[in-house]
Structures are given as structure tokens and as C-alpha cells.
């Protein structure tokens, strides 16, 4: 019944946009790490990571812990993490577990990119 996680990574000027599809649970870590070893940073001076959860239907506490670990690693390696496309329910859960202390939530890629543009231009 598990829907294995698929990832689609699209680089942009200052960062990476990663679209996740499937379940974000305890099995997801290995899959993400196989294409993006976040503890080494994003490479090529990228400073922003957008995680698009629009096509993620199931997130459990292990998945949320994984998101926090990525965001905390980002602080050490100098990249900001943006999460977008999460449903209202999961946004509520993210607040409950404290994920929002580490990531910024946006409704979609476009809103996250606008914020990044503003940050880049010093606004």
C-alpha cells in the first residue's frame, strides 16, 4: 500500500526546487539521500531549497522529523529551506511539532520563489 517516494529536482539560479511525490515517512530518508545529500549542502553556492509537497498524500512523524533534519542541516550549511504545497492539515501538524521554527511555509512554488527573489534583492 506504500506509495514509494519519487523526487524531481529542478535547479534554479540560487537554489534547488525538489518536488516530492508519494509518502513522506520513515522509508523516505534513504530515497531523498540517494539524490540529495543535504548534509553536504546544495552545491555550487546554492542558498535556497524548495520542497514542494503538493503531490505528497501522507506524511507521518518520521517524515516531519526528516524535514526538520534537512532544514537544520541547511542552517549549518548556509541554505534556507522553504516548504510549499502542504495541505492545511499538514501545515497544522508542522506547527504542532515545531517544524515552522526551521522552515517557511508557502502555498506553492511561485510564492516561495517570489520570497527568494525578494531576499536576493535585499528586500
Amino acid at each position: 500500500m506504500n506509495s514509494m517516494l519519487e523526487l524531481n529536482i529542478v535547479p534554479f539560479d540560487a537554489g534547488l526546487s525538489v518536488t516530492l511525490k508519494g509518502d513522506l515517512d520513515q522509508q523516505a530518508e534513504q530515497k531523498i539521500r540517494s539524490v540529495l545529500d543535504w548534509e553536504d549542502g546544495l552545491g555550487e553556492g546554492r542558498r535556497y531549497l524548495i520542497l514542494n509537497l503538493h503531490e505528497v498524500n501522507f506524511i507521518n512523524s518520521a517524515g516531519m522529523a526528516l524535514l526538520i533534519r534537512i532544514a537544520r542541516a541547511g542552517r549549518k550549511k548556509g541554505f534556507h529551506t522553504f516548504v510549499c504545497g502542504a495541505s492545511a492539515h499538514y501545515q497544522k501538524l508542522f506547527r504542532m511539532v515545531g517544524l515552522t521554527e526551521y522552515v517557511m511555509l508557502y502555498p506553492d512554488d511561485y510564492a516561495a520563489l517570489q520570497r527568494i527573489e525578494a531576499l536576493e534583492s535585499g528586500v
Binding site: S61, R69, L93, M96, V97
Partner: peptide
């Protein structure tokens, strides 16, 4: 500690 993150969250939820 990073690898401790998430412990107890299920119950918290």
C-alpha cells in the same frame, strides 16, 4: 541531537 528528532512526536500528535 539530529538523529533523536521525531522521537515522541507520534504521541505528541
Amino acid at each position: 541531537v539530529d538523529n533523536e528528532y521525531g522521537r515522541g512526536w507520534g504521541l505528541r500528535l
